[in-house]
Simulated scan of single mutants.
Amino acid sequence: MNKPRSTWLTAAGAALAGLAGLLLPVLGPAGEAEAAATGIHVAQGRVYEANGNEFVMRGVNHAHTWYPEQTGAIADIAATGANTVRVVLSSGDRWTKTSASEVSSLIAQCRTSKLICVLEVHDTTGYGEDGAAASLDKAVDYWIGVKSALQGQEDYVVVNIGNEPFGNSGYTAWTNATKNAIGRLRGAGIGHALMVDAPNWGQDWSHTMRDNAASVFVADPHRNTIFSIHMYGVYDTAAEVQSYLGHFVNSGLPLVVGEFGDQHSDGNPDENAIMATAQSLKIGYLGWSWSGNGSGVEYLDMVNGFDADSLTTWGNRLIHGANGIAATSKPATVYGGTGGGDGGGGTGGTAPNGYPYCAAGSASDPDGDGWGWENST
């Protein structure tokens, strides 16, 4: 999402294929073995904490770089039950640069609030179409410049290299630009889990990310890259949502829905299908955004005026609705919780309905509500 834009420029993509089988893969893409990684890491197409517990993101985006004075937002997001916050930073190419000390403070706030912190550079939004956008190379320069704030935070931080790094022009360059960005970060000694956004303003209607994700993944010497799709008007039917998300799961590639909303100027996203499919496939999702949207998309605010006690319709849906944050988020075990990390069922703890979750490896709990079969019981 880009704060100044009042509309999203999208094109009609080719017809999406029907939903394939949704069985979890047992091998990574093309049988590649993931390299050993510290901190948050990918294994067999899934995201894990450093201790080996699977982690499924359930959270909210926060536009820090435009509202740095809103210092209580991260704690307020945590109070919803979210386990992750995606924080908007600036490399200084479009907005005021987020300093290394500011990054350290944001990470500290996330840790105090027991949230996994996804940090993203927003200046890259729409590169190739928006003349003011910065390249992924510029974003990498920024990350290397704030490396001191990131070091030692691998258990708590995911580096989202650049937000929506290509628009609807020049997006075929996404694959090589993304590989180069990953290579430079690894060469600079940044060992965190990396997140890469799709082109086409994040929506990948061209399937550029989908069709090249496997080669991008193996280009990371750490095999520790997570893919992020942003779902707005391009994803206005359940079939489109299921097809896209299912493709990554079936391919053994890690994916999150890094942004989505319940309405938009480019079409009406099917938020119910996004949340239900993410839940059934154990894929993370991060709603856009806590507060502060402008330029005609104020309806994407989850709370009015950064007031945690004033939920909007969208905020109430995301947090308290079916397959929402309150019902499906499991805390990160790095903070000492029992976690479970499967987006709502499978590895211990208590479900929102009061029943214990089925134990991993012995359970059949397809809807993740804790009420299922364990050892034929």
Rank of each mutant, 00 (worst) to 15 (best):
A133R: 04
D197V: 01
Y127D: 08
A359D: 12
A351C: 15
A327T: 09
H41N: 15
S280F: 02
A43C: 02
H320M: 04
I319Y: 12
G349Q: 02
P366Y: 00
G246V: 05
Y244I: 05
M209W: 03
G296P: 12
P4A: 04
A43T: 13
S291L: 01
D262T: 14
S364T: 12
A35Y: 07
V218Q: 06
I161H: 08
R184L: 05
N61M: 09
R317N: 14
D211T: 11
N61V: 07
I116P: 07
V60W: 06
L253F: 01
T347Q: 15
L311S: 06
G92I: 07
Q279F: 02
I40F: 07
Y171V: 00
N2H: 15
D211Q: 14
H64G: 00
Q109D: 15
A188M: 04
Y357N: 10
G294R: 10
E129W: 11
G372Q: 01
V121Q: 08
M195E: 05
G341T: 08
G337A: 15
G187S: 12
G315P: 02
L24W: 00
T312F: 07
T98H: 08
P254R: 03
T112M: 09
E129P: 01
D365K: 02
I190H: 01
M275H: 05
E154A: 09
A213L: 06
A50G: 13
E374Q: 14
M57H: 03
W174Y: 12
G296L: 13
H222M: 15
Y232S: 03
L22S: 15
Y232K: 10
G167F: 03
W143L: 05
A177E: 12
W143P: 06
V157K: 06
G28M: 08
D211K: 12
